[in-house]
Design a binder for these strands. Structure first.
Lengths: 250, 250
DNA sequence: CTAGTGCACTGGTCGGACCAGTAGGCTACG
DNA sequence: CGTAGCCTACTGGTCCGACCAGTGCACTAG
């Protein structure tokens, strides 16, 4: 006892070392978005590994959304600006594997949206307020234009809100979760009866939210938004799950 | 016009097809965690592709956290139970690339934690309440045991809360964001002066939160928790960012 | 019955080869 | 002289065959 404490040697694969180095270069800013990596054949020289190893590393980096390669491109792989695509992918997997229920996703949206609105009520500029108003105007014009157009206008509104919140993480997560929710209920919406009444009510809710944001009453705006989202999605979840959603309505 | 509308042909790589098929099998439940994929040599026969292609596909699946392979294993790659590791990775990248500031992360934690507490106040069982109490007891015992032990007890408390909230997405995101925040401020904490006073105050805050949860007063518990987190982290962010955090304190 | 040894697999890595693309320079035509 | 079109030198995508260091299991020798 008291001797040297040996640590288990973890064998690290060659392609992982390559991934680490490139990742480090990107995250440290030595490689910025738009720049090109050397060609695969050049990389295999620099790293002293075979092309297979280089390619496996590139596949990993690509799966993480850091680079993109295109056949025939005289330059090497392109370093991408960050995109929440990877985040989106893993969260989608989560939902697909049935680890997540629709109710949990909607609940999460209620939380994020309410938070964004609370922040937006404090931090919004006049321009952002105008954007929100324009989006609601778009919703009004889209009532008869079909589900898809209406949905796009609705997304525009919530986008304006989260941007006004000033929190990019909320923005990204909202975006990811929203698209998953929309995908999950897309077929149910398609088969639903005339939803124009629901749309008009949704517009009214949005207007109330804007008014509260304009007035700077964040808590009220957040409460209204939670209620609006609950009303909009309650029909898609079971009664047991609905009660969990209602827990957010205080 | 009016003729057939052709879509741009997107060339799909062989390894992507392999990824898709395996992914589909996992997400549909045809392959469940713990099961093994065929060996790479067997896969190249089944998919009619070369081993390089199979391996690139496996690298992608591995990067997404769906499978793991080990050299020498007589069986093929192992299908993994879902883990937020991939989610964690992409969110960490986000933070590293400096897309996210510490303040945004803390703000996000405030939002998630408050939401979890709001839900927990409604849905918690007596056992979960006891867990929270035990965790705070652990914090009290750890005041003199150093930052690390205290932090672990603190994590245990918040874990108990998010579990009681019944929302796995909140649970996962809390876990991911918390570890990133802790990592970001680890060095600053290490260099800080005696933090025992801060710890004792934190304990008092936690006790108040538990009391509010026990009383079923979700809004109060959430408000207390936001305040507690603000007090705990305010010292690590600039004044401008602090004001954004305060926007959540209503 | 057990301890030890092979063997038949596994994944990790390497090297070379070919193909289909792309971009940019070069040539030949107007 | 300008431009349309070809040519070439690359790129990434895929395939093949080979070798190595591990691992688990059956078989064997004690």
């Amino acid at each position: 006892m008291g001797g040297p404490r040996f640590e288990p040697v973890r064998t690290v694969r060659a392609y992982e070392r390559v991934v680490e180095q490139v990742e480090e270069a990107i995250e440290s800013g030595a490689l910025s978005p738009g720049q090109r990596l050397p060609s695969e054949r050049e990389l295999m020289v620099q790293f002293s590994v075979s092309r297979s190893t280089v390619r496996e590393a590139l596949r990993v980096l690509q799966a993480r959304g850091l680079v993109r390669s295109r056949p025939g491109d005289p330059n090497g792989a392109e370093v991408l600006p960050f995109s929440p695509a990877a985040l989106h992918k893993s969260m989608t997997t989560l939902a697909r594997v049935d680890e997540l229920s629709l109710a949990e996703l909607v609940q999460f949206r209620m939380v994020l949206d309410a938070a964004a609105i609370l922040l937006a009520a404090r931090l919004r500029t006049e321009e952002q307020l105008a954007e929100m108003g324009a989006a609601v105007e778009g919703m009004r014009a889209a009532v008869d234009a079909g589900e898809e157009t209406f949905g796009a206008a609705d997304v525009a509104f919530h986008d304006a809100v989260v941007r006004a919140s000033g929190n990019k993480l909320i923005e990204i997560c909202t975006d990811v979760v929203r698209s998953i929710v929309l995908k999950l209920i897309a077929e149910r919406i398609a088969g639903a009866p005339d939803r124009r009444a629901l749309m008009r009510e949704s517009i009214r809710h949005h207007e109330e939210v804007i008014a509260a944001i304009r007035a700077g009453d964040g808590p009220l705006a957040a409460r209204l938004s939670r209620k609006a989202m609950y009303d909009y999605y309650a029909g898609y979840v079971s009664e047991g799950e609905r009660s969990a959603l209602r827990a957010l309505l205080e």
